[in-house]
Simulated scan of single mutants.
Amino acid sequence: MPDIPTLSRLGVVGCGLMGSGIAEVAALRGIDVTVAESTPELAAAGRARLVASLDRGLRRGKLTEAERDQALARLAFTHDLGDLADRQVAIEAVAENREIKLDLFRQLDKVLADPEAVLATNTSSIPVVDLAVATGRASRVVGLHFFNPVPVQKLVEVIPALTTSADTVARARAFATELLGKEAIQAPDRSGFVVNALLVPYLLAAVRMVEAGAARPEDIDRGMELGCAHPMGPLRLLDLIGLDTAQAVAESMYEEFKEPLYAAPPLLQRMVAAGHLGRKSGRGFYVYDS
């Protein structure tokens, strides 16, 4: 078994919805977390997002004031990747863009001082092996795919590349389950992994129904919520995920498999071009209050 206590210093790169969620869960579970963003302004915004989330937990009775304060004390924020040098686990949670992730992995490979440090990606669709071979520690690179919102969703997909060592897989799984308290499944290193390989065609089919005028978004969503006991309909889920993220995932999967069911529908592409990205922009298939 891996030595669980040794994986107690976490670095998270990116403090958007996913990165902040990962950092919050880790800090609440007693892990020392350093969060890196690309600018001081983004680092400050990330800290504000995390503080607001912890304060919501306090107001709703999910946290005590002491738990909130202890979690904040375990969180540090930086815009200098060099501050992650002592991390034993680093998880990237930046934009779902291959070139951005490749460049980041090359930098992290140089920054992490411990050659045994686990370098993980939270990618939704990019093959892990592509990121692994960009580093000099391919055996230590693994996928850890969390789900939004991270504090609520229990699942983590553990995705070993062909280059990932068995020890890294065991350490990553133990980190996700025993330290973060999540439930892990092992997924193949193919675009979409397990969950998105099933979910994305379903979401895109809902977009095509709207595009064809076959049904209204609210009827599609209520149909799946009431008829199939889904907690959220596909179009509301797309708005939550972010239509730009959904398009990027679909394009990555289509690039690998060339299956028409993975191709982003024209309506989705037009909405992204218009800036109608879902909840984060205030408008997607539905309109949201600021």
Rank of each mutant, 00 (worst) to 15 (best):
R137W: 07
S139F: 00
A132L: 14
P127H: 09
A120P: 03
T121I: 12
M232T: 12
S139E: 15
L119Q: 08
L102G: 00
L203W: 11
G136T: 13
G136N: 13
P127N: 12
A161P: 06
N148S: 11
R190H: 11
P151E: 09
D219H: 13
G143V: 12
L144I: 07
A214R: 00
E92A: 09
S125D: 13
H230G: 01
V133N: 09
Q153E: 13
A134E: 14
A197W: 09
M209K: 13
M209V: 07
V128F: 13
D130N: 01
L119R: 10
T135C: 11
T123F: 02
A176C: 07
A214N: 01
V133F: 12
G233D: 08
A172M: 09
V118L: 15
V210N: 09
R173A: 15
T168P: 08
L144N: 00
E92Q: 10
A174M: 02
A229F: 14
Q153W: 02
D167Y: 05
A176L: 06
L226H: 05
A212R: 15
D130T: 04
F146V: 11
A212L: 11
K182W: 01
H230K: 09
V194D: 07
D221E: 08
I159D: 02
P149I: 01
E218Y: 06
V141H: 03
I185V: 15
Y202A: 11
V142E: 00
V194F: 12
N196T: 09
K101I: 03
P149N: 04
L104A: 08
N97D: 15
D103Y: 00
V142I: 15
L108R: 00
T135N: 09
R173S: 14
R140D: 03
A93W: 01
V158D: 02
